[in-house]
Write a protein that binds this DNA or RNA. Structure first.
Lengths: 198, 198
DNA sequence: CGATTACTTCAACACTTGTTGACATGTCGT
DNA sequence: ACGACATGTCAACAAGTGTTGAAGTAATCG
């Protein structure tokens, strides 16, 4: 249950709640869904919950997105072009990747698609999308940029480490270390060594 | 849906299906549940599915284990004393840990409690148990055995890496590299370096 | 202004879920 | 062998799910 000041339309400020605007409503649903999927897995989130937060009727979800799965696909399927990460110089790539993940901590808003996808990766719907994202969007392009031996295994391990950090922080929650600087100081060199290849 | 030759009692070999034995029935439920939770997350598995595989009535699950959650706790809560891993010499600990995880691949039976727990870690029920297992059962004891600086962060990262490898192999499935030797050759030194502390 | 369209609301469907209690049946001690 | 208890079966409940179609209402255009 996500706490939220979900004012029922007709009770409070705006007298006309919201004008009948398809684009606005659609976006409201999208935002609410993003919010929910960021905190709970696909199965845990109900259409009624999303609708309640968006302040609309549950049936509108189906009207605008066909189905709950369609909504999830649109929320999460924005695109996963992570190749921009590899743009900078490779000598500091490890540090950049680690800090990117550490800042994706699901503690905050966590509206990040990757976090949402990872959270829902235990459901059938999310797993396939997650696989594509991690393989085609990260491991393969990274592997292509590495030199030396075992490039595929090294790229896979880098992806595994980054995902592992995310999962650990999700599961451990408050019990996980909070000092991002110290964590980065430990993790970044380990990742960089895999990128450099010894 | 887990395919299985679930012969209805009274159709086939044993004429009396199975004598009324509480211990046997209990174990049958336990086995069926292990089987299910190894393939799907807690939420995905239904009591009726477990009962069907075990060849018993769904209500017996509640009779013997109080609730579905009680059954899950008994299946997964065997115990998580991973300290035996740290018994051997520390110079080869990285290699042992990595190989342990690589052999836990969910491809096979995957009856491993850790895999099941990780798979159900997106549900509320599994997350708390997983947190205890990973923190009290691994990170804390490992951290105590490390020397040097940032022992806590290093232990956390080792845990994250191992979990990450498991998650990656779960998600990537067949697309993940199959050559365990090459993966171990890449991952083990990285982990070992964290254990040694540079 | 009136009619058509776009948008929203409501109520219900069909289904699954975990759980419960009443009833039937097998097993075992006396 | 009979009674007492343990064990198994059956049907149903209450709550939740995603989804659907009809009816109502605001906005738009001729």
């Amino acid at each position: 249950m996500i706490e939220l000041n979900q004012q029922k339309p007709g009770a409070g400020c705006c007298p006309k709640s919201r004008g009948r605007n398809a684009a606005v409503t659609r976006q409201a649903i999208l935002d609410a869904a993003r919010r929910c999927f960021a905190h709970e897995a696909y199965d845990q989130v109900g259409v009624r919950e999303i609708a309640s937060i968006a302040g609309i009727d549950p049936s509108l979800v189906n009207r605008y997105f066909g189905s709950k799965e369609g909504l999830f696909a649109e929320v999460v399927g924005a695109k996963f072009d992570l190749s921009y990460l590899f743009a900078g110089e490779q000598a500091t790539l490890g540090d950049r990747l680690v800090r990117l993940i550490l800042n994706k901590t699901p503690k905050g808003d966590g509206h990040d698609p990757l976090v949402m996808l990872l959270r829902s990766s235990s459901c059938d719907v999310g797993r396939e999308k997650m696989r594509d994202a991690i393989l085609a969007g990260f491991v393969t392009p990274l592997s292509a940029r590495l030199s030396g031996t075992n490039t595929r295994e090294r790229a896979e391990l880098v992806g595994s480490i980054l995902m592992g950090i995310l999962v650990y922080r999700t599961i451990a929650g408050e019990a996980a270390g909070q000092d991002i600087e110290r964590q980065a100081a430990v993790a970044a060199p380990a990742v960089q060594r895999l990128i450099d290849g010894e």
